[in-house]
Amino acid sequence: MTDQSPETTQLFLTASMPCPYLPGRQERKLFTHLTGRRASTLHHLLSENGFRRSQNLIYRPACEGCNACQSVRIVANDFVPSKRFRRVLRNNDDLSIEVRPTAATEEQYALFKRYLDSRHAGGGMTQMSMIDYEYMVEDTPVQSVLVEYRLQHHPGQPLVAVALTDVMQDGLSMVYSFYDPDLAHRSLGTFLILDHIEQVRSADLDYVYLGYWVKDSPKMAYKAEYRPLEVQRGPLGWCPL
Rank of each mutant, 00 (worst) to 15 (best):
Y133T: 01
V167R: 15
V160M: 10
T190A: 13
Y176V: 10
L151H: 06
N92T: 02
E134R: 07
F178C: 05
N91L: 09
Q169H: 14
Q169Y: 09
L183K: 09
L183T: 07
K113G: 04
V142Y: 02
S96K: 03
I197Y: 06
V200Q: 12
D195S: 14
P101S: 12
V208Y: 05
E106R: 15
S177N: 14
M128E: 04
D94N: 05
P141S: 13
M125P: 02
V200K: 11
Q127I: 02
S202G: 05
L172N: 12
R90V: 03
V142G: 03
I97T: 13
S96Q: 05
A184I: 07
E148Q: 05
R186D: 05
Y209A: 06
F191I: 13
M168S: 14
V137R: 00
R150H: 04
A104R: 05
S96M: 03
N91C: 04
L183Y: 06
D94P: 01
V142A: 02
Y135V: 08
D204H: 15
T190G: 13
V142K: 03
S144P: 00
L95E: 04
A203C: 11
T140N: 06
Q199S: 10
L116G: 06
D195I: 01
G124H: 04
Y109G: 07
G124S: 08
D93G: 01
E106F: 05
G211R: 04
I197C: 08
R100F: 02
G156E: 12
H153T: 07
E138C: 00
L188T: 12
Q199L: 13
Q152E: 10
D195Q: 14
A161S: 15
Y179H: 15
P158N: 11
V137C: 00
D93V: 01
L151M: 11
L146E: 00
S173D: 11
G123R: 01
D180Q: 10
Q157V: 07
D204I: 03
K215L: 09
H185Y: 13
T105P: 00
L111R: 14
G156T: 11
Q152Y: 01
N92P: 05
R100S: 04
S96H: 03
Q143A: 09
V145C: 03
D93L: 03
Q108A: 15
G122K: 01
L95S: 04
S96C: 04
T105R: 11
G122H: 01
L116Q: 13
T190N: 14
V160C: 09
A104W: 10
S96L: 05
G123C: 01
I197M: 08
L111F: 11
A163Q: 15
L116I: 08
T140Y: 01
D166L: 12
L172Q: 10
Q152H: 04
H120Y: 06
A103R: 15
V167N: 14
T140E: 00
M130A: 04
T126M: 00
A184N: 09
H154G: 00
T105A: 06
Y176L: 05
W213S: 10
D182L: 10
D117V: 02
M168Y: 12
D170T: 15
E98A: 14
D139C: 04
D132H: 03
D94T: 05
R186N: 09
V142D: 01
V162Q: 07
G122C: 02
P158L: 08
V167M: 15
D195W: 08
N92H: 07
R114F: 04
L164T: 10
R186M: 07
S173N: 11
T140P: 00
G171L: 09
G123W: 02
H196T: 06
V214Y: 08
G189M: 07
